[in-house]
Write a protein that binds this DNA or RNA. Structure first.
Lengths: 102, 102
DNA sequence: TGTATGTATGTCCGATCTGACATATCTTCC
DNA sequence: GGAAGATATGTCAGATCGGACATACATACA
């Protein structure tokens, strides 16, 4: 794993090479976690770039502030679907999403 | 829209430029449909490449033949999450997925 | 310190998704 | 034509997800 990715995961509270592996996360599960993280970070960067609060974004998405917070926290109860839908509604393209998760 | 993409959509039963637009699909919704299609096609190609039946794949995924069929048909009841999880379990990487949806 | 603004966390119930089953519709042989 | 294997379609109960609300925590500033 590249150092940058490891840092991202650990920043989000995942101890790569210790906790994750100890928990027995399979490659798929790890990949899903990484995708969720990548998308959540992309979402936050889009939001802050536009100088929006989580509440503002929630309104734009017809969601709630708490859910936006969970999205950005890569909460397990947030699906990739929701993250992608949110990004798309913010004007992101499939290419942007592809770039984020690659 | 590029011709190739239009063909893919129409092959799957979507009349791009007629039904889709007539139904008033927003850009996000269209993008989601396209992603689902791209992933479903990738899934089918991976399966056939491995010479597996839908039943075989279902067993590997601990799912059912009918759900695999729906996945490959880009059925609206199938989430992007499920498609991605399935691809990952087949050995695809996040890069493969990114390439598929881009 | 206290207030205002923004963010995080926990819970709940209605909505959506999923595996499973039944059954229908192909294909490909004989 | 018909049997066998593969794929498609419809339905449903249980599982997961999502918006909403309450509330806790954080940061800034007077």
């Amino acid at each position: 794993m590249k150092t940058t990715k490891r840092q991202k995961l650990e920043t989000a509270g995942w101890k790569v090479g210790s906790t994750a592996d100890f928990l027995g996360l399979s490659p798929e599960e790890t990949a899903l976690v990484e995708m969720r993280l990548a998308l959540s970070q992309t979402l936050r960067s889009w939001r802050t770039k536009h100088r929006l609060t989580q509440g503002d974004l929630a309104k734009a998405l017809r969601s709630s502030q708490s859910r936006v917070a969970k999205m950005e926290a890569a909460d397990p109860t947030v699906s990739l679907d929701l993250l992608m839908r949110s990004l798309l509604r913010l004007g992101a393209t499939t290419k942007d999403i592809a770039k984020a998760i690659a």
